[in-house]
Amino acid sequence: MGLVDKVELPQPIKFVFNWGRRYSLWVFNFGLACCAIEFIATSMARHDFIRLGVIPFAHGPRQADLLVVSGTLTDKMAPALKRLYDEMPEPKYVISFGSCSNCGGPYWDSYSVTKGVDQIIPVDVYVPGCPPRPEALLHGILELQKRIGSESLKQRYIDAGSRPEPIVVDA
């Protein structure tokens, strides 16, 4: 990485870096079902998450900072999700949007549905709902931005095992 993962940056520098990162989240929408429509609604004029610095429709995972999994992940699709997540550059964040991607949702006993994307990739924020309203996604993004704002990249990379507990947005 460079310097940021070797030394703890002085507080003012860290603040500026984190401030820059939290307000330019290029987002990669992994839309798998109806929740993707809510995601698109959140990106459009009424809710407009670009005003929060979330830039939709990154050209590909290699240009993205934030992955939003919105919809039903099946066991057959899971390797593709894992691969796209692995292609994203660090530091990267994941929002699990909707019941299906949180835990399988209404398909919890299906033979083909993965019971939550957290079985495949680490999740930072869970947004519950079936589907959640766009406001819930905005809330999840704000919570994630709060966390990024106070994050220490040194801790993130050196103590990779000590990931903070994921945030669960209240329904």
């Binding site: 399988g104 919890w108 006993d109 299906s110 033979y111 083909s112 019971k115």
Partner: peptide, 14 residues
């Protein structure tokens, strides 16, 4: 493995 729409197919979650 298995034929999931047969009645005897066990849903592991259940």
């Amino acid at each position: 493995v298995g034929y999931p729409l047969r009645k005897e197919f066990a849903l592991l979650t259940r």
